[in-house]
């Protein structure tokens, strides 16, 4: 099972991940990233990988 890790010192809430995997990521009203499912389902993994790759501050990682 892969697990999403967020480096809170790096995240600036750009919402790039949210655009690519909107069911998994959401930037809340305070500009803080909320991860709805820290262990995304198999069918979401491709989108989550794209989101990790696209993060402009390299704040996301996918750990096995």
């Amino acid at each position: 099972m892969s697990r999403i890790e967020v480096d809170r010192d790096r995240c600036v809430g750009s919402g790039t991940c949210e655009a690519l995997a909107p069911d998994v990521f959401e930037v809340d009203d305070d500009g803080v990233l909320v991860v709805h499912r820290e262990e995304p389902g198999e069918e979401e993994l491709d989108d989550v990988r794209d989101a990790v790759q696209a993060c402009p501050t390299r704040a996301l990682a996918l750990a096995d």
Binding site: D9, E18, P22, E26
Partner: peptide, 20 residues
């Protein structure tokens, strides 16, 4: 620089997300 930069940026970051 952070942490001040990050705290101030968060005030508006939500507005600039793709969803908003």
């Amino acid at each position: 620089d952070d942490p001040r930069h990050a705290r101030i940026r968060r005030i508006v970051s939500k507005t600039f997300t793709p969803r908003m």
